[in-house]
Design a protein around this nucleic acid. Structure first.
Length: 605
RNA sequence: GCGCCUGUAGCUCAAUCGGAUAGAGCGUCGGGCUUCGAACCCGAAGGCUGGGGGUUCGAGCCCCUCCAGGCGCGCCA
């Protein structure tokens, strides 16, 4: 979907770089950058002829240079203007640069390159100020209100069917959604997590019947599974629990009554297991929303009537149809079947109506790849309810599971899906979270279990964690030798100016962009950028660590480097927390399970 | 048949608004520990970004077309 307008469509005040904003907590880095952009915006306008200006002056923005040899910040604004104004970009850029360093704070050098780039190199004092600023922010460094919105956002994801164990796709959807919620909050948005439990309809009856078959078998009866039943072995455990609680009384009970009771028993049992897995996977929801509760409260009828009243639904052939073609669907969709039963879509209508009435300004749904055909009618639904454009859908693409050379086919009914729990048992929570998140949501990923297990020792996640643990270790040693207190008393702020090593400056440069980086990644719905960022911060730190001794003889330099370490530590910790990975003070010995990662082994779900 | 997603180094994947010489990890090869944790660092090799055409100062990214893979097109959920 058009990610450049998603937020604006809903009236969210999305703050973009280059635009003025009233950010309460503004870093020296961002404030300076904005002043530079403002200064250049003025030069930019002056560089155009009156005829050009009439057509508008593009926003002048700087980005951190990718290649350090290009300086610290680069702008391609003149290239854009060259196109718009039909003028040689190189000449535009030169005109802009002609005023030199006039009115540019903390800039050491300005130059124009090849097709029309404008490059800035900052004075060392700028980077020192940036770090000083970060030290002052303490453990809050990186938190911002860059994505402050006019209303709350609700993210719905990993919605499970309570008919079996959580599958690997729920792992992907779960880690994606949870990270997105964390990142949005970190950037100042009001975001909440919710999951929708499909605990109504025929599938629950099938679940009940399947459970009964297992139960009867345990009771010594020869009973085959129903045709479209759930064949997974997990139902044997559920049946055992049922037998233990109720004995064989259900063998003699009336079928309708039994079906209801067993359906509920299975649902509750499985749901409890699913919650356990989600907890262990560190995915938390403000609410597990029950579909059945909508039926029970009459919300389905209500919303169908509402849609009819609004003229967006009509009766035809004894059924009630949503006029989704009005909103771009290729055909209308049934809300109520001719036999009177509501469709799944009708329940979704009630659910989304409920969400909107609770005051959410933006709904983000993360769906599995097999539901992408559902997106248009869902959007139609929300529009018909009077909230056009307030739904955004993300597709968490498929996960292909591989073990050896064998691609494991996913069949839910047959029960041979790879469960989230299996994955967690084999590779651990941290590695699993990182693995899912390190790829773009829309990429089709191959989960090679052998590779994941084998690589778990040199998985990127441990690289990042190791960086964090190393810093923690430095502070432990500093504390043991009594230097920490002495250093705290020293003139820390002044000492920071001593930092000048290549690796020190590289680390500061990386750290400086943390807040805007998280905000950008959240806005792009791209948590995978954050895992990459964390890896880069760790890489910069590891280089610094090998090149520079932190706890050395020079007390002032030690003080300065400890300050740098403290900020790096904060950034690593926050990054890891945002993606749901533990930040350990010590690395566990290889091969031993992480202390934060206990296996759930109550049953082989 | 129509629609959505994907195709980038041997493998798994990145690449910000269309920006500069397409980057990481794993694997391979070569170096580096008497010192804060070597789960680390430094370096090298490895690419017609599936093929072809187009748009422009500039295309992995946008448009057209073809090829390959996945998924979806119910009064199922």
């Amino acid at each position: 979907m058009e990610n450049h307008t998603i937020a604006e469509r809903h009236g969210c005040e999305v703050v973009r770089r280059g635009q003025p904003n009233q950010c309460a907590m503004d870093t020296h880095y961002r404030a300076t950058l904005r002043r530079l952009e403002d200064a250049f915006q003025a030069r930019f306008a002056a560089a155009g002829s009156p005829a050009d200006i009439a057509g508008g002056v593009p926003a002048f923005t700087f980005l951190p240079s990718r290649d350090p040899s290009h300086g610290d910040f680069a702008s391609a604004a003149a290239l854009g203007a060259g196109k718009q104004w039909r003028r040689n970009p190189m000449l535009v850029a030169e005109a802009i640069a002609a005023d030199g360093l006039d009115g540019l704070p903390q800039v050491a050098d300005i130059c124009v390159a090849k097709p029309g780039f404008i490059n800035l190199r900052m004075k060392a004092e700028f980077w020192i100020d940036v770090l000083r600023d970060a030290v002052r922010a303490g453990t809050d460094f990186g938190a911002s209100d860059l994505l402050k919105t006019s209303g709350p956002i609700l993210i719905e994801f990993a919605s499970p069917n309570p008919t079996g164990p959580l599958a690997i796709v729920q792992g992907r959807s779960g880690s994606l959604g949870a990270a997105l919620v964390s990142m949005l909050r970190f950037a100042g948005a009001d975001a909440q997590a919710e999951t929708y439990v499909n605990d109504a309809g025929a599938q629950l009856d099938q679940l009940a019947d399947s459970l009964y078959a297992r139960y009867a078998t345990l009771c010594g009866l020869d009973r085959a599974l129903p045709e479209n039943g759930y064949g997974g072995a997990y139902l044997v455990d559920v049946a055992r629990a049922l037998l233990e609680r109720d004995g064989d009384r259900w063998l003699k009970t009336d079928e309708a009554q039994r079906r209801t009771a067993l359906g509920e028993f299975a649902r509750d049992f499985i749901l409890a297991e699913q919650r356990k897995d989600m907890d262990r996977f560190r995915v938390h929801f403000e609410r597990w929303f029950s579909e059945a509760s909508l039926h029970a409260a009459g919300k389905i009828d209500e919303v169908i009537h509402k849609l009819v009243r609004l003229g967006h639904a009509y009766e035809h052939d004894g059924a009630v149809w949503l006029r989704s073609t009005e909103f771009g669907d290729d055909k209308d969709r049934v809300l109520r079947r001719s036999d009177g039963r509501p469709t799944y879509l009708a329940a979704d209508a009630a659910y989304h109506s409920d969400k909107l009435e609770r005051g959410y300004k933006l709904l983000i749904n993360i769906l599995g790849p097999d539901h992408h055909g559902y997106v248009v009618r869902l959007a139609a639904l929300v529009a018909a309810l009077g909230y056009p454009g307030s739904l955004e859908v993300l597709i968490a693409q498929q996960v292909t599971f591989k073990r050896g050379d064998e691609v494991v086919a996913m069949s839910k009914r047959a029960g041979n899906v790879i469960t989230l729990r299996e994955v967690l048992d084999e590779v651990g929570v941290d590695a699993a979270r990182f693995y899912f998140l390190a790829r773009a949501p829309e990429s089709h990923l191959v989960f090679d279990m052998d590779l994941a297990v084998q690589q778990s020792a040199n998985n990127p996640v441990y690289y990042v964690q190791y960086g964090y643990a190393r810093i923690a270790s430095i502070f432990r040693r500093a504390e043991e030798s009594g230097r920490l207190r002495a250093l705290a008393r020293s003139r820390e702020a002044a000492d920071i100016g001593l930092l000048s090593h290549r690796t020190e400056l590289a680390l500061i440069r990386r750290i400086a962009t943390f807040d805007s980086f998280v905000a950008d990644a959240a806005r792009a719905r791209a948590p995978h950028r954050l895992t990459e960022y964390a890896r880069e911060v760790a890489a910069d730190f590891h280089s610094f660590y090998t090149e520079c001794t932190v706890l050395g003889d020079d007390e002032s330099l030690t003080s300065a480097r400890l300050s740098l370490c403290s900020v790096a530590k904060t950034v690593l910790r926050s990054s890891l927390e945002l993606v749901g990975v533990a930040a350990p003070d010590r690395m566990q010995p290889k091969g031993s399970p992480s202390a934060t990662d206990e296996a759930t082994s109550s049953m082989p779900l």
